[in-house]
Design a protein around this nucleic acid. Structure first.
Lengths: 143, 143
DNA sequence: CACTTTTTAAGAATGGTTATTAATCAAAAC
DNA sequence: GTTTTGATTAATAACCATTCTTAAAAAGTG
């Protein structure tokens, strides 16, 4: 189980003032099942399997609420729609710009990221995101 | 002068096989004048002032060529079109999610970034980009 | 139950970016 | 100095992820 435990989910909803509706729950569940980095479209398709009534727009709204309250993370790579990640523990992903595959980089840690940034700016830092791109082993062999 | 010296510009074009056309030069010059982080649209407007004939599509093409050969950097913040930066020296920018202003964070350095990432993945890393967002001093006072 | 507020569904609209295609330009060959 | 060939550009259409709009449904509240 990568995602937050049930208690954390409820806690974050309670504190935010948003209600944990069945649609938001469905989106969370879909992300849980993926264990990857689906796009909004992919989440939509997964949610639709269980509840064909939901609209893509609803999924976008639910995702943005979940992101806002810190239950999921959004990552913006180039040449790709935004991808969502249930794993909000500090970790880093790399995306192959040839095949699109996203993989976690194990063992990589920059623990002083946020604090060092805060030391150097008068901005109130709300979000930091390290985007890493490259070619996966399989795609390196080609041309 | 933040951007690459003339010799570097020529060198990078020569090695890439692309030709340094007047349009690509115009886009570079426009970026030079900005000394900020304009969007494609803003670059387009600046280029247009000197040469009203250029089309937005041309600017997009030129920007992607310049990015490909490493003369400029593209940064993808949320809720914003891609912004371009002539400064390819390692440095970090923060964007205010309220007013949209982009500022460089002086004195911030993570010199072991790329190397530490390379140690931990079999991917061939081609690009790393740290996206930092927050609220600027002016926007912190509001609500 | 009535009423107020929030959330959702559906689809239209938006907007940044790409793709298309014909015209133009530039270097190389004749 | 043409001609040929290939790359680049202009103009515009197309695309597609995302947001907006509006009305309906649901949930919370007195």
């Amino acid at each position: 189980m990568i995602g937050s435990p049930e208690s954390d989910v409820r806690e974050k909803f309670r504190r935010s003032g948003y209600t944990l509706t069945s649609q938001r729950r469905a989106v969370l569940d879909a992300l849980q099942d993926f264990k990857g980095h689906p796009s909004a479209e992919e989440v939509y398709l997964a949610v639709k399997k269980k509840n064909p009534k939901v609209a893509l727009g609803t999924v976008y709204q639910a995702l943005s609420v979940l992101e806002e309250i810190g239950l999921i993370e959004a990552k913006r790579w180039s040449e790709s729609p935004v991808r969502y990640d249930l794993n909000t523990e500090p970790h880093y992903d790399i995306r192959c710009t040839r095949c699109g595959e996203v993989a976690e980089i194990p063992g990589l840690k920059f623990d002083d990221f946020a604090s060092r940034i805060r030391e150097n700016t008068t901005y109130k830092v709300t979000n930091t995101s390290l985007v890493i791109e490259g070619h996966c082993p399989a795609c390196q062999t080609e041309t």
